[in-house]
Write a protein that binds this DNA or RNA. Sequence first.
DNA 1: ATTCCACAGGAAGCGACGGCCC
DNA 2: GGGCCGTCGCTTCCTGTGGAAT
Length: 433
Amino acid sequence: MSLITSIETVSEPTHQLHSLHDVQHLFDRILQSDHLFINRDLLRSTYIPEILPHREQEITELANILSPALDYAAPSNVIMYGLPGIGKTAVAKYVGAELEAAGKAHGKNITFLYVNCQLVNTLHKILYDISSHISNNHNILTTTGFSSDVVLSKITTCLDATRQVLILCLDEADRIKDDHALYTLTRINEHLHQSRVSIILVSNDIFFTESFDSRIKSSLNQEIMVFDPYNADQLQDILRARIKTALKPGVIEEDVIPLCSALSAQEHGDARRALDLLRVAVELAERKHDHNVTNKHVRLAQSKIEKDRIAEVIHSLPGQQRLLLHAIRILHRYNDHMGKQSVMITGEIYNQYVELSKIVRYTPLTPRRVADFISQLETLGILTARVISKGRHGQTKEIQLTMPLAELAHILNDDEFTQEFQQVKMKNQMKLL
DNA sequence: ATTCCACAGGAAGCGACGGCCC
DNA sequence: GGGCCGTCGCTTCCTGTGGAAT
C-alpha cells in the first residue's frame, strides 16, 4: 500500500459516536461481554506475589545476608546478576518488604528503598531519591538546586538522627553513568555513627563491575548472587500460580501455558515475557468475545507485543530521529523501486536526511550526531547495522530495517512530518516521498 | 607495501535549561 | 537578578579502521 493510500484509509471513521448516550451504551456492551479475568493486574510483571516459585533458595540467601540489619549492624553489600525477567527485582523487593516488617515487629527501624537507575542514573538523582524517601518529619531536601555534597550531608545527618538501617536497592545499576557515584554511595557508612547503609546492586550485565577501579571494588565488599534463567517447566509453574487468582477457572486451554512458557524459555527464560504473553492473549480472547484462550490467541499476542513495542518506541522518538527514520523509509522505498538491495549505507541516509530537513525547515544535525542516532535506533531494535569496509571507498555502515517497510510506513503514517511531505509531494509530483 | 577513502566512534567542550540559593 | 549546580543535546576535533586501488 502506498503512503498516500494508507493515509486515506485512516482519515475518516465509518461510524461516529454522537452523544454521551452512545458512549454509555458502548461501555455497557464492553462491560456485558464475557470477562475472562478476575484481576488482570495479577498477570502484570510489576505485581509481586506472596509466593515466588523457584526462587526460594535466592530468597533465603538474601535474607541471610541482610539479617544483621535486625541488630543495627551493616549487612554486606550485594550484587545480583542475571538476565532480564528472571526474578532479581522480585526477590529483592520481596526480601526488602519482609525485612522491613521483621524490623517493625522487633522494634527496629529498617528502611528498604528501591531505585530504578534507568531513570535515576546519576549520583545527584539517587541522593534526591534517598532524601525524599527518608524525609518524613525531618527538615530535609526534597527539591533540586543543591549540590550533591549538600544533599549527602543532609542525608547522613537525618539518618543518624533517626538510628536506622537503610537498604538501598539500585536496580539496573549498570545504567548509572558515573562510577564515582557508586564509590560515594558505598562510603556513606564512614559518615554515619548511629545508622548504617547497605547497597544491593541489580544488573543484567555480568561484566558491569569489571570496569570499576580497585577503590570501588574494595569499598563494595560485596556478596555476589547469580540468578539462573527459568526453564520452561519452571515458567509453567509461575504462570499456573498466577492464573489461579487472576483468571476465571477453565478459561485457558490445556496447551496455552506450555506454549507461553516454551516461547519465553526460547528467549532466555524470561518470566516477564511469559506473563505479558499470557495477559495479552487473554485480552485478545476477551475482545473477540471468545470463551477460551487458545494457542491462536498466544500467537496473535506474540506478534502484537512486538509490533506495539516498536510503534511505541518510534512514536516517542524526538523529531530529528523520526526525520531520520523518514529518510530511511524513503531511501528504502527508492531502492525497492530501482530493484536494488534494501541495504543502505550511512552516507546516503545522511544525504537523504539533509534533503528532508530542508523540506520541514529543520537545521540538519552533523554527521557525527546522526551516526549516534543510527546507533541508538540499532539499540532499540529498529535497525541492524554492521561496519563494513568498501576498500578504497572507505569504511561505512550497512544498515537494514528489522521490520517490513510497509510496517514502518504504517507507523509513521500519523507522524507530523508525513503531512508536510504529502504537500510537497503533491506540489512537485515526487513519487517517492 | 603503501596509499586512500569514508566513515566509526571517543573525548572534550560549549551553551541552554531547570531549579534552587543568596 | 546573578550565581551555582547538574544534566542534556550537540559540535568539533581527533585517531583508528580495513580492504580496494595503486
